[in-house]
């Protein structure tokens, strides 16, 4: 607990220092184009507390957080929790959809490769897997738009609103995720097939299909889920590239906006949120592993 608090404090402080070093004055940025005079901008600066000594600003910045107050966005003029919440929803939708695609596709590929070891299929799957995490989503996304939206006209190229808008980004992002899952499943299944309990099961005469389903898959699922959990946590941080290519809103865009406008309360909120996700994801992956692998469960208990 103390260590988690230390990690959080470190991350938040890092954000404060970086925003302090970065050029740009939030009050001026907000008001200059509206015809506000220099005095009026100065008044706003005082209002936002930007004229206080740095130490005072920092204490307030950490102190608010310690009291659980995320504050009000300077740019949006609304509670940071609401601003983040509104961006989180579309990000979460995309993250879930992309993870589903990635797991489905990755599991299929990985199993195929492991069960047909050293065949052309194995080679092909390995190639697809490496290709998937070598392809920038900002390129595959553009190609997908070019093909499915502009040439074929099947799907909308961008934006949100219906599940049709979700298809292309989820496929593109899911494909990018699938490679590492496929490889993990492939390796793990190959290993498991040499384990004594699988060999024993086969010796008992269980059909291959059943062996795969009950023993191999179960053993392979653990590490795969760990990767999925880590990646899901990463996606929740905002798949900014995919959001940008498909013009979706989400946390990634919020991050860019908050930094661009030096919106310190939102930056702090995002840092806190990602730290929580980070801790949560690691905890979840530990628990899942333990649940799937009885040996570990005993260790943990």
């Amino acid at each position: 607990m103390a260590q988690a608090a230390f990690v959080l404090w470190l991350a938040v402080t890092l954000a404060f220092v970086a925003m302090e070093l970065a050029p740009g004055d939030p009050a001026q940025a907000l008001l200059a184009a509206s015809g506000a005079t220099a005095e009026e901008i100065a008044v706003r600066r005082v209002q936002l507390g930007l004229d206080d000594p740095l130490l005072v600003q920092y204490v307030r910045y950490v102190g608010d957080l310690a009291r659980g107050d995320l504050g009000v966005s300077w740019l949006h003029g609304r509670a940071v929790s609401r601003v983040i919440g509104e961006s989180l929803f579309p990000t979460a939708v995309l993250a879930v959809a992309a993870t589903a695609v990635g797991v489905g596709w990755g599991l299929t590929l990985g199993l195929l490769a492991a069960l047909r070891r050293s065949t052309w299929l194995d080679t092909l799957v390995t190639a697809i897997a490496v290709l998937s995490f070598s392809t920038p989503t900002y390129w595959s996304g553009i190609l997908a738009i070019l093909l499915f939206s502009l040439r074929l006209g099947w799907l909308p190229s961008s934006g949100e609103g219906s599940w049709r808008h979700l298809v292309l980004p989820a496929l593109v992002l899911g494909f990018a995720l699938s490679g590492s899952i496929a490889r993990l499943v492939q390796t793990r299944v190959s290993e498991v097939m040499n384990e004594p309990f699988v060999v024993a099961a086969r010796a008992r005469g269980l059909p291959a299909r059943q062996v795969i389903l009950f023993h191999i898959l179960r053993a392979a699922l653990g590490p795969a889920l760990t990767v999925v959990a880590l990646q899901f946590g990463f996606l929740l941080g905002g798949a900014v590239i995919t959001e940008s290519v498909f013009a979706r809103r989400g946390l990634g865009k919020l991050v860019v906006e908050a930094i661009t406008w030096r919106d310190l309360p939102v930056v702090r909120g995002i840092v806190v949120f990602s730290a929580l996700v980070y801790v949560l994801v690691h905890w979840v992956s530990d628990v899942v592993q333990a649940w799937l692998d009885p040996r570990l469960r005993e260790e943990l208990v």
């Binding site: 470190l10 991350a11 890092l14 941080g237 905002g238 990634g252 991050v255 840092v271 980070y278 801790v279």
Partner: peptide
């Protein structure tokens, strides 16, 4: 951990 918990894009 602090660095990893910090959003990469923000960093």
């Amino acid at each position: 951990d602090g660095m990893l918990a910090f959003p990469g894009l923000l960093l």
